[in-house]
């Protein structure tokens, strides 16, 4: 068990190293483009250019450049973005991360609860009008683009019906840290949570329903029925528990990519200064150090989440535990 865990950690580190090399090569070793000019920003003075070239070691061989970059990113954390008024990149991300974390975690809780409820109910009532309605609702959720849904939500809650009792509590766009004012934090995020969750509810309820329906044909489900268990118990303890294995693996990956900046559209629409929005800004400004940092940040989350999923797998599925 311990050796399997250590092996997993080792694999994670190797993958992270690989990604960092790849990202570095894409941005800094692309032939025909001088990274110095890009880091220094448009219309930079020759002094700045010289400073950047020396600081990043662009006059030295590639491995040295890579090492310098990683040192600035992870150890001294003083990677500076000249394109953006000389702001340090790492603190920017550290500031943005809690916003994204708040948004994604809250949303994940909603989509987890609602999709499990919808999927289970639909599977339990397979073929009935309830099932068909839930499938339809899920499909509607999947087909609504999140930026459109977000704008509509804003329109309704902030302008059209803002003065009614229903939406008068909704604050304007922006974010309030949880530590500062928990209630304001909640108020600012509750609509973004729901908007972000809608599509995932649609996808996950459908996946879960399909999985549960397929499981109903399994021999062990027949055994459970032959044991005289109640349908609810069969569905929850035998069906849902087994489906959790598939569900968790998908959930982990989606959760991670959202944390890594995948909630970009939602963040932009609701004016939340999260990692996604940061990436968006970095891309519009072609801010190389910031892009490098956000990409590394999101890669780290996806890879870490993968590792967490694998560990959950081990906990959920005894067959994996024994290495089969």
């Amino acid at each position: 068990m311990l050796s399997a865990f250590l092996r997993r950690v080792g694999q994670t580190l190797i993958v992270l190293f690989g990604i960092s090399v790849l990202v570095f090569l894409v941005f800094f070793a692309t032939p025909g483009a001088d990274p110095t000019a890009r880091i220094a920003g448009r219309n930079a003075s020759p002094q700045t250019m010289e400073k950047v070239r020396h600081e990043y070691g662009f006059d030295r061989p590639l491995p040295f450049q890579y090492a310098t970059m990683m040192k600035k990113l992870f150890i001294t954390r003083d990677l500076t973005s000249y394109a953006n008024r000389g702001e340090q990149v790492v603190p920017e991300i550290i500031q943005a991360a809690p916003v994204t974390l708040s948004l994604v975690c809250g949303s994940a809780v909603i989509w987890l609860i609602v999709s499990v409820a919808m999927g289970t109910l639909a599977a339990a009532m397979k073929g009935s009008w309830v099932d068909r309605t839930l499938i339809m609702l899920g499909l509607v959720g999947i087909s609504m683009p999140v930026f459109w849904l977000g704008q509509v939500a804003n329109l309704i809650s902030l302008s059209r019906y803002h003065d009614t009792w229903l939406f008068s509590w909704v604050p304007g766009p922006g974010y309030v840290p949880l530590t500062q004012n928990p209630l304001a934090w909640f108020k600012a995020l509750v609509i973004p949570w729901c908007v972000l969750a809608v599509m995932f509810i649609g996808i996950y309820s459908r996946i879960l329903r399909a999985d549960l329906v397929a499981l109903a044909q399994e021999d062990f489900m027949r055994t459970a029925r032959a044991k005289g268990l109640s349908p609810a118990r069969i569905l929850v303890f035998h069906g849902l528990r087994t489906s959790a294995i598939t569900y968790v693996s998908l959930f982990g990956l989606d959760f991670a990519q959202l944390l890594g900046g995948g909630a970009l559209l939602t963040e932009v629409v609701f004016g939340l200064p999260g990692v996604g929005r940061l990436t968006y800004q970095a891309l519009t400004n072609l801010d190389l150090p910031l892009i490098m940092a956000t990409v590394m940040y999101s890669a780290t989350f996806v890879v870490l989440a993968n590792a967490v999923v694998d560990i959950l797998y081990i906990l959920l599925d005894p067959r994996v535990r024994d290495g089969r």
Binding site: E218, D219, F220, R222, T223, A224, A226, K227, H238, R241, T242, I245, L316, D317, P318, R319
Partner: peptide
């Protein structure tokens, strides 16, 4: 009335 089925490999829920 109890019933047992053909394949003991798949008769039990794998996660318990």
């Amino acid at each position: 009335i109890a019933m047992i089925f053909q394949d003991p490999m798949t008769a039990f829920t794998p996660v318990y």
